[in-house]
């Protein structure tokens, strides 16, 4: 099972854990953020998550069976994809949306290329971007429980107009804001991230360089607002933390060297800010990670320490 994860150029500095236990840890780490989502948005989000996970698991099973390949449900990667996908959806989406998303993530993005470890793009994120086809459904927000906001606009869409959102930074930190199911509480996401770091499932390079880049850029260009506050809001809003901790760190679609990871994080950060500032989408996290997914081979090529004459050998 281990060799399915190794697709990048050597060296492969990874623990001796198998995919199953890594995925289980990711599921544990996602739990706090999901619980905050369930608590704030109520039953519908539970249904969305269930459909999303169910759809991913079903299509993984169905495809492998149809293609007469071994069953890979045991590695729990489909469950993780389903959870991640549902976390990036608005709590107001109809249930057929995560169903389609699960199909796209598992069949098109992952299994067509041979399954876990062979795909070049993050399945959950690609599916989320694909679901933007139904833009009106994806962009209808609801206010979380315990917030009597007049409008249910997300902080990010307010900041698109270069203004500061109505919520306090503390609200954003705790999850008292409109947004996608799994992204609203920075505290819960950080808790999950800390768990992943402590159990050595992820390394700090990507999240740190990603968040730092966004912090520096938004601090330098506050668009007429108070620098520090603007920076804080930018860091706490949208799917930035969810993306930086859980999406960008996906083994298969991120570089295999530490230097490559730092560059990858910086690239994600720059593109995120560019799309947030100048693009037509309010959020740039998913697209920036997908775009950097396309550059992983380049980062690996650049940053892999290589013995003299190695390339020639590999080519012959």
């Amino acid at each position: 099972m281990e060799d399915r994860l190794l697709v990048s150029a050597p060296p492969h500095v990874r623990g001796g854990d198998d995919t199953q236990s890594i995925m289980l840890r990711v599921i544990i780490a996602l739990t706090p953020a999901l619980l905050v989502g369930f608590w704030r948005f109520g039953l519908p989000t539970l249904m969305i998550t269930a459909v999303s996970v169910g759809s991913c698991v079903f299509f993984e099973w169905g495809y492998r069976r149809l293609a007469r390949k071994s069953c890979t449900l045991g590695d729990y990667s489909a469950v993780v994809t389903g959870l991640l996908l549902s976390m990036t959806l608005s709590p107001a989406v109809p249930l057929w949306l995560p169903l389609i998303g699960g199909f796209f993530a598992i069949v098109v993005v992952k299994q067509l290329y041979g399954g876990l470890g062979k795909n070049f793009m993050n399945p959950a994120l690609a599916a989320r971007c694909f679901l933007f086809s139904w833009a009106a459904l994806m962009n209808s927000w609801v206010s979380p429980r315990g917030v009597d906001a007049v409008s249910s606009a997300t902080p990010l869409s307010v900041m698109k107009g270069m203004a500061l959102p109505a919520e306090s930074p503390m609200d954003c930190f705790l999850g008292l804001r409109a947004g996608c199911i799994g992204e609203i509480s920075a505290a819960a996401l950080l808790l999950g991230g800390a768990y992943l770091l402590l159990t050595k499932v992820i390394r700090p390079h990507i999240p740190l360089s990603y968040l730092l880049t966004v912090a520096v850029l938004t601090f330098l260009f506050p668009r007429g607002n108070e620098r520090l506050t603007w920076m804080l809001y930018q860091l706490l809003s949208g799917g930035l933390l969810l993306g930086a901790v859980f999406m960008a760190t996906d083994y298969v679609t991120s570089p295999g060297t530490d230097r490559g990871r730092v560059l990858y994080g910086i690239g994600c950060g720059v593109i995120t800010v560019v799309i947030r500032y100048f693009g037509s989408y309010p959020e740039g996290v998913s697209f920036s990670i997908l775009i950097m997914n396309l550059l992983v081979w380049l980062l690996d090529k650049w940053t892999t320490p290589r013995a003299f004459g190695y390339k020639k050998e590999a080519n012959t």
Binding site: M121, A126, C129, I271, S280, G284, L290
Partner: peptide, 10 residues
């Protein structure tokens, strides 16, 4: 699909 993130970039 990834490049669509750049749509409307001004």
């Amino acid at each position: 699909l990834a490049f669509m993130g750049f749509s409307g970039l001004k």
